[in-house]
Design a protein around this nucleic acid. Structure first.
Lengths: 250, 250
DNA sequence: TTATTATTGTGTTTTCAATACACATAGACT
DNA sequence: AGTCTATGTGTATTGAAAACACAATAATAA
């Protein structure tokens, strides 16, 4: 079956394998060069950017659907994933993806309710993959996200809010940073998520107080200034903290 | 059109007016006699208890659908409503509502994904109403909820968790208590939601610190002991607090 | 080799919330 | 009048949050 046939099949009979009216959108966050990034895709038809997402198979969990699209776009399993909101405004389809070949009575033309997930991934581990419907898949700086299809800009905004919220009770760095990282790096991460600057010394005190971090003897070299220590997460205390919840807000 | 016809119509052609595969479930919280309550309904057919819920009309917001079912069951408009999670396990239909008259290929037999909302209402204002499919609609103590259909017990549990969470940054009492209330009442509310006892004096200090409460000169009489003062929410500060967010956790 | 520069490491002080705890007061009842 | 008990009010301690200062060091420039 060639691409065109595959596409035809999807348009005409997709509703036999997927739940109608329901989709999943993933806001995939990464952190690179001290900036928070979002992974976006560009449709071949129409050339518009959008969130990676997908449909829910008839016997598949919604989470499962999100995990599947994450795997497809990043190549990664075992990603931190969090459902944060379900978007169901009947008008959200206004700015619909334009597909030339679309059939007027296709299931794709119907109204869609979309379950929003955000995912946290380690930037360097991701190998962004476009697929047969998209010709680009790449990271965008959170502050430079272009105009997206449908209500996807709003979804990104809400995902960021949800992430910000979860910073209070969840050691987010673990999922976004490499195994070894420095305190300044961790601080930049928090600062970009919160979009405000924090005091270096108070930040460090707060981070260390939770006992989820372990300082290594190694220091990061190559920088132009004093070499900062590397840290890594202490898995034991980290998991304990997840259960008990962290205290303090931002 | 009589009841039976109406029912037949709903079973056979409901999918013309509602989105398939999608429903809304509402966990309606009230507070009465120092206990947290949940409003539940009992199906005529099968006699099982469940959460009040409904389906989403083809041109209706999901929120709109929740507001509609809330209005139908409580008679109230303008209810505090919060979407907290979407339940999409394909197996959640295992313990399906049993309807004698159901047609085997009815849209109702399909898998349903359900958007969960919790609502906060003032107990005394509610006039619980069963409808043509249900013969009972009444309050249950949160700790005495019976076995419910589908995964509704789990939905209640998650709603309570979400409510507990929102206690941190949202002055919940305003929606659940009458206009005038006493400090002990407010404390009982927090204690039942959190399911733990709090220190009287520290609780009061914390509540008053937020400046969302105003003490009245009137005291509550009739009790067997020293008469407690009435308080009411200070709308100005209350709204400011909502925007800025409250601090402190539980 | 030495000086410069910017960044990191490591404190201190003050303020205020969280927590634990004690005594006085006032309604209803005997 | 006296008892019982829930409410009103106050104090001490601990610890986190926030504001702030100086020493150490790695790369670079002189």
């Amino acid at each position: 079956m060639d691409k065109d046939q595959q596409f035809e099949e999807f348009i005409l009979r997709g509703s036999q394998t997927f739940l109608q009216h329901l989709s999943v959108d993933c806001v995939i966050f990464g952190f690179h060069e001290n900036q928070l990034k979002v992974l976006l895709i560009k449709w071949k038809e129409g050339g518009q950017w959008s969130l990676p997402g997908g449909f829910v198979k008839k016997k598949e969990t919604i989470d499962g659907s999100a995990i599947r699209t994450l795997k497809e776009r990043t190549g990664l399993d075992d990603i931190f994933l969090h459902q944060f909101y379900t978007f169901g405004d009947p008008l959200r389809g206004k700015n619909k993806i334009h597909l030339k070949k679309i059939v007027s009575d296709s299931w794709l033309q119907e109204r869609f309710v979309s379950v929003g997930y955000y995912a946290l991934v380690e930037y360097s581990k991701v190998n962004p993959k476009p697929d047969w419907l998209t010709d680009e898949c790449r990271w965008w700086d959170i502050h430079e996200v272009p105009k997206l299809v449908l209500d996807h800009n709003g979804i990104v905004a809400r995902a960021l809010e949800a992430l910000r919220q979860s910073l209070n009770d969840h050691p987010v760095g673990f999922n976004l940073l490499p195994v070894k990282f420095t305190m300044p790096q961790l601080q930049r991460l928090y600062e970009t998520i919160l979009n405000k600057s924090l005091d270096r010394r108070n930040f460090q005190k707060k981070m260390l107080r939770s006992s989820t971090l372990e300082r290594l003897k190694e220091r990061k070299t190559g920088g132009a200034h004093k070499a900062p220590y590397f840290y890594r997460f202490d898995l034991r205390n980290y998991k304990r903290a997840l259960k008990e919840g962290l205290t303090g807000e931002w």
